[in-house]
Structures are given as structure tokens and as C-alpha cells.
């Protein structure tokens, strides 16, 4: 396939993925708006006044970037995981497997769909947040880097999960046992400076912590961890995720017997 044909193939898949997100918006876009709206009401309007400011920022402003990031990565993950797995389950993944579309087009097309869903959901949550507080912007490029790189990483994770999954239950294992605990212990709701040393050390081993921390830095200009570690970590994990998923698709893991 020449470059133009590759582009059409990629665009077809990506557009299809995005259309899917928009078509089933009550399952893809509405839930985060509602869930995070509730967070804002509880932590901002009800409790906000009673929780002291963190580093001179009202509590709701401090947690907002983390909530956006949390929404973005869980939605990126579940978008690719469920879209890819149902394509496997209903067998229409075969439409792509029989076509000359190279593996990397398939991988990046699904990932692009996941990124779009993650980013849209993140933006929705931020917009909902605007009803409750102002959102300062320290550096828009940092915000974009962290948002896109995190969305991409968790889209890849969703793809990997869907590749090895054999039944629908298998794609909820990672969200339940890995994603949820890691996001809640990623310093979204507190600064790790407040933690006892053991917890602090544990948090430093949590990759999502660096995403939340760096993302928050883009808004507030404050951070708890090394930004360099965050950028390197995200870049390396993305490349690793891409390499592993490309390899698995090439081998046909979970796709070809």
C-alpha cells in the first residue's frame, strides 16, 4: 500500500472508532460528566470549604487536574478494550485481518480512537469543573503533552488487554484491580507531601502519580515529583506499549489460531 492508501485505511478505522464513541455517547461521554459532576459537588461545594487549601490553591482546584486525568485514562483504556474485544468477539476484526492494512495502521487506528475518547471526556470534565471553580492554566503545552501521552498509553494498555482477553469479564480485570487502585493512590486527592514516608515511597512507584503530578503542573505550576522522570516514563512506556502490541498483533496473539 502506498502512503495515500495507508492514510485512507488509517482514517477509515479512526473515523469509525470516533463515530462509535459519538454514536453511543450515553455510554461513552455522559457517565464521566455525571460522575465527576458529583465529585465536584461533594468535594467542591459541600466539603471544599472545610478542607484547607493545598499550596495556596482551593481544594477543588487542586483535585481538578487529577480528576480530568483519571477520567481521560480510564476512558481511553475502556474505549480500546471494549471496541477491540467486541470486534474480536463478533469476529469483525477479520475485516481488517483479511485486508492489506498493515498491523501498525490497525494498532494506531484503535489507539487514536481511544485518545479521542479520553481527550473528549477529559475536556467534558474540565468544562463541568468550570461551573464550580476557575481553572488556571500555567502551560498549555505541558497540559497537552501529559493528556495525549497518558491517553495514548492507556489506549495501548486497553488494546493489550483486549488482545489477551478471552471473554468480556477479562477486560474489566485491569480496570478493577489495577487501574482504580492506582488512580486513587496517584495523589489526585492529596499532595504526597502530606503522606507518611512509606506511602510516599509507594506512591513514587506508581506511574499514574507522575501523570497526575505533571498534568497538574501544567495547570497550577506546582509539582511534587521530578518532571523529567514523568516525561521520560511516559515516553518510554508509550514506546514499549507500542512495540509489545505491534509484536503481539504480528504474531496473531488472540487473533489467529
Amino acid at each position: 500500500m502506498n502512503a495515500h492508501r495507508l492514510y485512507i485505511a488509517w482514517l477509515t478505522l479512526t473515523r469509525k472508532e470516533v463515530m462509535r464513541v459519538l454514536r453511543i455517547w450515553t455510554q461513552t461521554l455522559l457517565p464521566p460528566a455525571i460522575t465527576m459532576g458529583i465529585y465536584f459537588v461533594v468535594f467542591g461545594a459541600f466539603l471544599g470549604g472545610q478542607i484547607r487549601q493545598i499550596e495556596n490553591y482551593p481544594y477543588i482546584q487542586f483535585i481538578l487536574p487529577g480528576l480530568v486525568m483519571m477520567t481521560c485514562i480510564t476512558n481511553s483504556f475502556s474505549n480500546v478494550a471494549s471496541s477491540f474485544f467486541s470486534a474480536k468477539f463478533m469476529r469483525h476484526i477479520e475485516e481488517m485481518l483479511v485486508s492489506p492494512m498493515p498491523d501498525w495502521i490497525m494498532v494506531t487506528g484503535f489507539v487514536a480512537g481511544g485518545i479521542v475518547r479520553g481527550v473528549i471526556c477529559g475536556v467534558i470534565v474540565a468544562l463541568v469543573g468550570l461551573f464550580f471553580t476557575k481553572i488556571p492554566v500555567f502551560n498549555v503545552f505541558i497540559i497537552m503533552f501529559y493528556l495525549l501521552a497518558s491517553a495514548s498509553l492507556f489506549s495501548l494498555a486497553g488494546l493489550l488487554n483486549a488482545l489477551v482477553a478471552r471473554k468480556f469479564d477479562d477486560i474489566s480485570i485491569v480496570p478493577t484491580f489495577v487501574l482504580t487502585p492506582l488512580t486513587y493512590f496517584a495523589g489526585t486527592f492529596y499532595s504526597i507531601k502530606m503522606l507518611p514516608p512509606t506511602w510516599k515511597t509507594l506512591t513514587l512507584a506508581n506511574p499514574i502519580f507522575y501523570m497526575v503530578d505533571g498534568f497538574r503542573y501544567g495547570f497550577l505550576g506546582i509539582h511534587d515529583a521530578s518532571l523529567l522522570v514523568g516525561v521520560v516514563l511516559l515516553t518510554v512506556l508509550n514506546l514499549l506499549g507500542l512495540a509489545v502490541s505491534m509484536h503481539m498483533v504480528k504474531k496473531g496473539v488472540g487473533l489467529r489460531s
Binding site: R5, A9, T12, M90, P100, M101
Partner: peptide
Amino acid sequence: NFNIFESCWNTVNFQAGYYGID
């Protein structure tokens, strides 16, 4: 091996897209 929620038009048209047909 269909996506049963997709329309007939899209099913055929997307397939053309996977082959890079404009």
C-alpha cells in the same frame, strides 16, 4: 463476521477504506 450494529452501507464502504480505496 459482521459488526451487527453497523449499517450495510458502512460495512461495505469501510471495507473499501481498509484497502485504501478513496
